[in-house]
Write a protein that binds this DNA or RNA. Structure first.
Lengths: 110, 110
DNA sequence: TATTTATGCAACCATATAATTGCACTTGTA
DNA sequence: TACAAGTGCAATTATATGGTTGCATAAATA
């Protein structure tokens, strides 16, 4: 469990994706998070470490509890990578749209 | 190299992300793709197999050549997952926007 | 102060991953 | 038909991954 540590690697694991979704709206403690999963608290702790290492998550200590919160801005990195493809699929959609309206026009002209 | 095969797992590897970007605009053969990387043709072939298995890529055979093309629609799955977070960061942005305009208003009212 | 609670870290383990090398198969061409 | 080109698959290997159990530490509480 070392070396490469980026957002894409982090979201590859389904448990980590679930954790991200879970804490997206409100910060939670490792114990509280672990209750939602079928693994040990320590396993969740490891996931949180990975999420912390790639800065998808930040901690806030309150007494002996540590609240983990999603760094929503980091999620934008994925969004930014998708940008290049979004351009492509929007273009294709418009082309399909053009095609459909052409067909419609031809129909009306009959 | 088995079992779990989803889009998130597929894009976790940087080489596969590069392949995806490379063939996004035009289909390419494994040989042509491999020329862009510092690995063997066989390694690229394996990546293409993984991308095919999770339907991120489709093949088109032309004689003895096989052209690999990106299934752009599959990329939308990532976009859809991001949707839930996009709502959050847009809300936060609006809140910031509101705050800024409130400050501006207060300034003008002075 | 002794004990419980909340947490992280280390060691270990089974399995997945990414890469390499060597081979087999199919299609095009001399 | 022989050979070259384009490709995939199998076996092997080193390393990464995700999980477990057992500790250690710090804060809250009886």
């Amino acid at each position: 469990m070392d070396i490469r540590r980026d957002v894409f690697q982090a979201i590859a694991d389904p448990t980590r994706r679930a954790i991200i979704t879970l804490i997206a709206l409100q910060a939670m403690t490792p114990n509280a998070i672990a209750e939602h999963f079928d693994t040990t608290r320590q396993a969740v702790s490891k996931h949180l470490r990975i999420l912390t290492e790639c800065e998808l998550v930040k901690q806030e200590t309150k007494g002996r509890e540590i609240y983990y919160q999603l760094e929503i801005d980091k999620m934008k990195e994925i969004d930014q990578w998708l940008e290049q493809f979004r351009k492509i699929w929007e273009t294709r959609f418009n082309q399909l749209d053009d095609l459909l309206s052409t067909i419609k026009k031809q129909k009306n002209e009959k």
